[in-house]
Design a protein around this nucleic acid. Structure first.
Length: 582
DNA sequence: GCCGTTTTCGGCCCGACTGTTTTCAGTCG
């Protein structure tokens, strides 16, 4: 069984135990173990085999046995027993804002609530307000929470979150009472999708800033308004969708602590606090102070000061998952993560020769504008008629056009001749080898038959990337974040094959894809696979999506040297040529 | 259920906000 699936099961077990009223620390142990599995440095099966799993912090004897049982047999009687004791719809209730395990337990016992539908019906009939410990307000909030869940679907994409938060941040920073302000939370960590927006500011007097924020024209509803925090709903990008935005104010000498705290992740924060405690210090969102003598405080102007106070190198937000960053930062061994400015060019861009909006000239000009030294054009191949895939004749016409443009650039910039070549159903490619040989590079991607069984899809992709003409694999899982699930594929087998055949794997930087994800990207690097960051741009503006791909790379601990398209033009040309079959 | 440089028992991250209470429990991050 896959690691992520096992983690999910442990997480569910922790939740069911909570609903059953178990010892909260026992519940937490399950949740914690799930978190630990997500951040595991290596392959679970290998770690069981070589015994290193038993050494992992947070996995004791009991949970170790359960994990091994799940990994080897795919089943766990203890889990099945818990599931049998719990109505299947009950866990879904947790996703309702304001409803947690205790309320679920109380409602289940008092009203036999078993599902979201039950909960809604009970709320609409007024039954919830009559339960001890509940009231009219709670009932209304629960009904509203159910509505929220249905309209938001929970999360938004990174580009949407950035667009929503930018004007808020401007408004807060422009307020005369504000010293510093930052967006934090999962957005600052550059998570794949964002649940809500967190904005932090420092001020001598937060009140007027909070009031100003609550009164901004885009605010659809004020959810809560305290002395240091205001929560509001902002209209999202989809019809009837709303996104929660929290604004918090602190004193300026608290800013570094609050910024770190509200950036998270939760697991990282817990580890950070434990680290502080181990040094006789107590860390919260306002200060770092002595446990025995709370009046003894260690001032920190910024996050770097705070990390140094705990004997750590400053940890970039993208690494804050308690997945090895403390060990590395404590040893002074954090990698220098790749940065947007390291990229020298990119591949997998479309032009109006297939389904792009811009001409070759416009795309090249856009790339030069961004400081790039080269641009790879990889229009679609002939099978993808829907996207005006190029026939072999049109490919040759495009090559001639690119040659002419390159002659005009006179060596100061270069367009590489590429293709995003379809991987056909049987794993063969959409162009014959003699045509593929004429390209500077080939991106191979799946665009059809997404519903294939897992082993067939895996074999299909492996066959494609084993073709010596293929330079890199495009969007490895085909997923569209929040809208289309990835196709079933054994990514570890694909990564192994890529390593064997020296095929690169792209990080598709489109905020709708982010495919390969950071977890597998980190694994691919460990296997020696070169990573290339591609925007899958269909317009000049689409080139800007590279920033999202860089974030994925950073979350995967990649340095400049791990990313192919950070080398200067001459070296890129040389390396691409060396990868072509002789 | 996990864990140990005062511990193999007795702790386990912690503060803000809300709603229900009349001093606190639940939820959230």
């Amino acid at each position: 069984m896959e690691t992520a699936k096992i983690a999910q099961i442990l997480d569910d077990m922790g939740t069911i135990l909570e609903v059953q009223g178990e010892n909260p620390f026992r519940c937490r142990a399950y949740h914690n173990a799930a978190q630990v599995l997500h951040g595991l440095p290596g392959d679970l099966t290998e770690m069981i085999a070589d015994g290193s799993l038993a050494e992992v912090q947070g996995i004791g004897e009991t949970l170790y046995a359960k994990i091994v049982q799940l990994a080897t047999t795919g089943r766990l009687p203890a889990y099945e027993k818990l599931r049998a004791q719990t109505p299947p719809g009950l866990l879904a209730l947790l996703r309702v804002p304001g409803v947690g395990p205790k309320k679920i337990k109380a409602l289940h016992e008092a009203l036999d609530i078993q599902s979201l539908a039950d909960l809604r019906a009970a709320g609409e009939s007024g039954a919830i307000a009559k339960v001890k410990g509940f009231g009219a307000k709670t009932e209304a909030n629960i009904l509203e929470g159910i509505g929220f869940l249905e309209t938001t679907g929970g999360r938004i994409l990174q580009n949407e979150a950035l667009a929503l938060v930018a004007p808020i941040l401007d408004a807060v920073r422009n307020h005369p009472g504000v010293s510093r302000a930052e967006a934090c939370g999962s957005l600052r960590r550059r998570a794949e999708t964002i649940g809500d927006l967190d904005v932090l500011f420092s001020s001598k007097d937060p009140r007027p800033v909070l009031d100003h924020f609550a009164g901004l024209p885009q605010v659809a509803k004020v959810l809560g308004h305290g002395a240091t925090k205001v929560s509001v709903l902002l209209p999202g990008f989809k019809t009837d969708q709303f996104v929660q935005c929290d604004l918090r104010g602190v004193a300026d000498d608290q800013f570094a602590f609050a910024l770190h705290y509200f950036t998270g992740s939760k697991a990282h924060n817990i580890a950070m606090r434990k680290r502080a405690l181990a040094r006789g210090l107590s860390l919260n969102e306002y200060a770092l102070s002595g446990v025995k003598d709370p009046t003894k405080t260690i001032p920190c102007r910024d996050e770097a000061d705070l990390f140094r106070a705990l004997d750590l190198e400053p940890i970039p937000p993208e690494l804050r998952e308690d997945a090895g960053e403390f060990e590395a930062a404590g040893a002074g061994a954090l990698p220098r993560l790749v940065e947007p400015g390291d990229l020298t060019g990119t591949f997998h861009c479309h032009s109006d020769w297939s389904d792009g909006d811009a001409t070759l000239e416009e795309m090249a000009a856009g790339a030069r504008e961004l400081g790039m030294q080269y641009l790879g054009i990889g229009d679609h191949s002939r099978s993808l008629a829907m996207a005006r895939g190029l026939t072999i004749d049109r490919v040759r016409d495009q090559w001639a056009k690119i040659d002419a443009l390159n002659a005009r650039f006179g060596g100061s910039f270069r367009i590489f001749k590429g293709t995003e070549c379809d991987i056909l159903g049987d794993g063969s490619l959409d162009f014959p080898d003699d045509v593929l040989a004429g390209f500077d590079y080939v991106v191979a991607s799946v665009h059809s038959r997404f519903k294939m069984p897992r082993d067939e899809m895996t074999a299909r992709i492996i066959r494609a990337i084993s073709n010596p003409h293929v330079t890199m694999l495009g969007h490895a899982t085909g997923r569209l974040l929040l809208s289309r699930a990835p196709y079933e594929v054994d990514l570890d087998a694909v990564i192994d094959a890529a390593a064997e055949h020296r095929t690169m794997i792209e990080i598709n930087a489109s905020p709708y894809r982010l495919d390969l994800d950071a977890v597998h990207c980190r694994r691919a690097r460990k296997k020696g696979v070169a990573i290339v960051i591609n925007p899958d741009a269909h317009s000049v503006a689409g080139l800007g999506d590279l920033r999202y791909g860089v974030s994925v790379a950073r979350r995967a601990w990649l340095t400049k040297d791990d990313v192919f398209n950070t080398a200067p033009l001459a070296e890129i040309a040389e390396r691409l040529a060396s990868l072509r079959p002789r």
